[in-house]
């Protein structure tokens, strides 16, 4: 933090209070709880061994429920925005991140115990990922939807629609590139998200929230919670107004438990899988949270008099 300059007292740096991001605002946890976040180094992976970084909010189940309310409220507007508009907003996120690149390199290096060069590669990949998904917003419907040649006088069209509110358990290890890789596809298609940051390394996620808040992403579209993944995920998996859940950040036992809870209102569930987040993604994470709506329109016949069905 503080750098020594010759013959002068080191300037005392200004710490940042890391906060949750809910409904476009930055509240502390309603519980008033925080937990210590430390650096991860290869030598000191275990909690408490690294250098103190911040007291992150330890979100409660009430915070989780508030986040769902915010995400539901934002769903109509975001899913109703044009795909072009959503693409521009996602691209704007990349622009804002580019400007704060150095900050994120530092935070990712601390969070994941990476060298500066490696952290820079992670941040660059994350910025590029936003650009990649920004380009998908107005193409996915053409790739996954289309007209169906039914045997009858109907124009039959299938189109993808966002599932709704998606709970996202961000990856535990890849606290920034992994996070971006699971959040961007969810919102690219018009869903809104309640994101649980990496439990041990939540700071890049909480800082990303500050970027989202200044990137024209409407409040509530992405909500970011930090804390114990299992504690926050349980009420989200059981929540009747959550439509889907991405279990990327859950271990095997937690994933099973959450999948069982999620069955109660038949949430669309994306199970954890081995992913190298540096690889160019496919469209799986986009389609995992899309519904297909098929509409039958009568084509009628011009020869008939009167109403033509």
């Amino acid at each position: 933090m503080s750098e020594k300059t010759e013959k002068t007292e080191p300037r005392l740096s200004v710490f940042k209070t890391y906060k949750l991001y809910v409904g476009g605002k930055f509240p502390r946890s309603e519980s008033g709880r925080v937990y210590e976040v430390t650096t991860q180094t290869s030598a000191a992976g275990a909690a408490g061994k690294g250098k103190w970084l911040a007291n992150a909010p330890l979100a409660s189940r009430k915070d989780a429920r508030d986040a769902v309310v915010a995400a539901r409220k934002a769903f109509g507007g975001w899913s109703g925005a044009t795909a072009y508009n959503r693409g521009q907003v996602l691209y704007r996120v990349a622009e804002m991140l580019e400007g704060r690149r150095e900050q994120f390199v530092r935070e990712v290096a601390d969070a994941e115990g990476l060298s500066k060069a490696k952290a820079a590669a992670v941040v660059d990949a994350a910025i590029d990922r936003w650009v990649w998904y920004a380009g998908w917003t107005d193409k996915i419907a053409q790739v996954t939807g289309g007209a169906n040649p039914v045997a009858g006088p109907f124009f039959n069209l299938s189109s993808p629609e966002p599932t709704g509110v998606v709970a996202v358990l961000a990856p535990q290890k890849s606290s920034f590139l992994g996070l971006v890789s699971v959040v961007a596809p969810v919102i690219a298609t018009g869903n809104t998200a309640v994101v649980i940051a990496s439990e041990k390394s939540p700071l890049p996620a909480l800082s990303l929230a500050e970027v989202l808040a200044t990137s024209d992403v409407p409040g509530g579209v992405v909500n970011v919670l930090s804390g114990r993944t299992a504690e926050i995920a349980a009420p989200l998996a059981a929540h009747q107004d959550v439509n889907a859940i991405d279990l990327a950040g859950a271990d095997e036992a937690l994933a099973k438990e959450l999948e069982i809870a999620a069955a109660d209102n038949l949430k669309r569930t994306l199970r954890p899988q081995a992913v190298d987040y540096f690889d160019t993604p496919g469209i799986d994470r986009l389609t995992a949270f899309l519904e297909t709506k098929t509409v039958w329109h009568p084509t009628g016949s011009l020869g008939a008099s009167g109403s033509s069905y």
Partner: peptide, 26 residues
């Protein structure tokens, strides 16, 4: 809803995807 019929109802076709939103399944 996953299937919407305009000025018709209960039409099915092998080429046309069928299935639900919400608790109608996935």
């Amino acid at each position: 809803a996953g299937v919407i019929w305009s000025n018709t109802f209960n039409k099915f076709d092998p080429t046309s995807p069928f299935g639900g939103y919400k608790e109608s399944g996935f």
